[in-house]
Amino acid sequence: MHKPDPSLPADQHDKRSVIQIEMDDMDQWLEETQKEASELLRLTPGGVFDASPA
């Protein structure tokens, strides 16, 4: 991820998240309209990714 720009107000910070696209959804992600692809944008449930110090 990245460090937020301290010169910007909190409501203008660029907020990003990792989005996991399931293999069964790849055709929709790559070939459909932006609206249809955006239906795949949902946060991955907690516990799916392993987190540990680098």
Rank of each mutant, 00 (worst) to 15 (best):
D27T: 11
L40G: 04
K35L: 09
D25P: 07
G46L: 04
F49M: 07
Q20M: 11
P4W: 00
M26N: 09
A37C: 08
E36M: 13
V18I: 13
E36I: 15
S38E: 06
P6S: 04
L41W: 02
E39G: 06
K15W: 04
Q34R: 14
R42A: 11
L43M: 14
L40D: 08
I19A: 05
S38G: 08
S17L: 10
A51L: 15
L41R: 08
H2E: 06
V18K: 09
V18H: 10
K15E: 07
A10H: 00
A10D: 02
S52R: 11
P9E: 07
S17W: 09
A51V: 14
L41I: 12
M26I: 15
S52I: 08
D5Y: 09
G46M: 08
W29F: 13
D11E: 13
P45F: 11
D27E: 11
M1H: 05
G47P: 09
E22Y: 06
P4L: 08
L8N: 00
A54F: 00
G46T: 10
L40C: 03
Q12I: 05
K3H: 09
P6C: 07
L43S: 07
I19Q: 05
D25L: 04
A37P: 11
S52D: 10
L30V: 11
F49L: 04
D24W: 15
E36Y: 11
P6N: 01
P9A: 10
A51F: 10
A37L: 13
V48L: 04
Q20K: 11
E31C: 02
I21C: 10
K3I: 06
D5Q: 05
K35A: 10
R16M: 14
E36A: 15
L41Y: 05
H2P: 00
I19S: 03
P4N: 02
E22P: 02
G46R: 10
S7C: 03
L8V: 00
D25C: 06
M1A: 02
E31R: 09
M26Y: 13
A37R: 15
G47F: 08
A10E: 01
A37I: 14
K35D: 14
E36D: 15
A37G: 12
K3M: 10
L40T: 06
A37K: 15
G46Y: 08
G46E: 09
E39W: 02
E31V: 00
G47R: 13
P6D: 04
D50A: 05
E31W: 06
W29C: 03
T33H: 00
Q20D: 09
Q34K: 14
G46H: 06
D24V: 15
E31P: 00
A51I: 15
E22G: 01
D27F: 12
R16D: 10
V48I: 04
A10C: 02
E39D: 07
W29M: 09
W29N: 01
D24S: 14
A54G: 01
A51Y: 10
D5I: 04
L8W: 02
S52K: 11
S7Q: 03
T44K: 05
H13N: 03
E32M: 13
P6K: 08
L30Y: 12
E36V: 15
S7V: 00
P4Y: 01
D24E: 15
